[in-house]
């Protein structure tokens, strides 16, 4: 049975297809580990222990999945409208900066009010940054991917400027803001881990996204525009408006990927704190086929891989970056079935 036939049989069932891609990635990753000279079974055992072996490890796995869930949801919402929001990275920086400034300078001491204000500031920051590619796309047909990627650099460098010049912590040798007050920090779900209430927020947002897309007319109109723009127009839906709305929602969710790191982990805005969450979010959304609950599952998987590999690297000689390798293989194998579908499609046409 050829690989192509193999995938064709499963392409109709997206869950099976994703699971098989995963399994294959682990096999290929295992071969690589074996080639380095380590027993792959032992390595995977250690990754497993590191990811979910103890309550503390599990808590850290969940913690590292938080920004990925938000980023993945942001990409998923935009994909539903037929857009590819590759600007999540920039949106999360802008959102996090707005949230940090709100935490530092808002003279409120009530914890509840302060956190709500921070969330609102964060969403506004993210939405502002998503609005630009959204409007340009809707009004002029400018490709949102190009605009969003360029805006990522602008956001990253602009926030860096802000923490070097106007908002730098007094007397600090590194580029960062001062710490936000205790009242503005999220509480921990599990002591001496990085798991905070942000995880609950992530799950709630996923449920909201699911509800929005499945049960509301707004969500219906967004997915109609993404599914078939012309049919949406003929059905009385204005694509321009819903493209922009979808980008705004996407930007608001994206901002939480940065803000929860600030208010839950670092308590300040640090230079380049995101290791590319926005792009991992894209991979998460693709693997989850834009299903919000799939996004949670995939993010936990990716989070577990990185905490597990870190643990493995302390015991074996393998670098913790093995997680990136396995992640990359997963991404390659997930996009492969889509590739086969495209090839299949072009065969049909001729």
């Amino acid at each position: 049975m050829s690989i192509k036939k193999f995938f064709r049989r499963f392409s109709f069932d997206s869950l099976a297809s994703s699971l098989i891609s995963l399994l294959l990635s682990f096999v290929i990753g295992g071969l690589l580990i074996w080639a380095i000279g380590t027993n792959p079974f032992q390595a995977y055992y250690l990754i497993g222990v590191g990811a979910v072996g103890t309550m503390k490890n599990l808590a850290n796995t969940l913690a590292s999945s938080i920004p990925l869930i938000f980023a993945g949801l942001a990409v998923a919402v935009s994909s539903k409208a037929g857009l590819l929001n590759l600007g999540v990275e920039g949106q999360l920086y802008m959102g996090a900066m707005a949230a940090t400034l709100c935490g530092l300078y808002l003279p409120a001491t009530n914890r509840f009010i302060l956190l709500i204000a921070i969330m609102i500031a964060s969403m506004l920051g993210g939405m502002l940054w998503a609005l630009i590619p959204g409007v340009l796309k809707a009004k002029f047909g400018t490709h949102e991917v190009i605009v969003a990627i360029m805006l990522n650099y602008v956001a990253e460098l602009f926030t860096t400027y802000l923490i070097i010049v106007p908002f730098r912590e007094h007397g600090s040798t590194v580029n960062q803001t001062a710490e936000i007050p205790k009242a503005a920090r999220l509480s921990k779900l599990f002591p001496r881990t990085q798991l905070t209430t942000a995880f609950i927020l992530a799950v709630i947002v996923a449920i909201i996204v699911w509800f929005l897309l499945r049960r509301t007319t707004l969500g219906f109109k967004i997915s109609a525009v993404g599914g078939n723009r012309d049919a949406a127009r003929a059905g009385g839906i204005n694509p321009t408006a819903y493209v922009i709305i979808a980008m705004l929602i996407s930007g608001a969710i994206a901002s939480f990927a940065g803000t929860t790191e600030v208010v839950g982990k670092y308590f300040r805005f640090r230079e380049n704190f995101s290791p590319g969450f926005g792009f991992t979010g894209l991979a998460v959304a693709v693997l989850a086929r834009n299903n919000p609950f799939g996004v949670i599952a995939t993010s936990i998987l990716f989070g577990g891989l990185s905490t597990g590999c870190l643990y493995m690297s302390r015991i074996t000689g393998i670098s913790g970056h093995m997680s990136n390798v396995i992640q990359s293989i997963i991404i390659l194998l997930v996009s492969a079935p889509r590739l086969f579908e495209i090839i299949k499609g072009s065969r049909k046409r001729t």
Binding site: A224, G227, N228, D230, R233, A234
Partner: peptide
């Protein structure tokens, strides 16, 4: 196909 249906959505939708 262009103006009538949303091919990836359920019949209800």
């Amino acid at each position: 196909h262009k103006y009538g249906i949303l091919p990836n959505e359920t019949l209800c939708r």
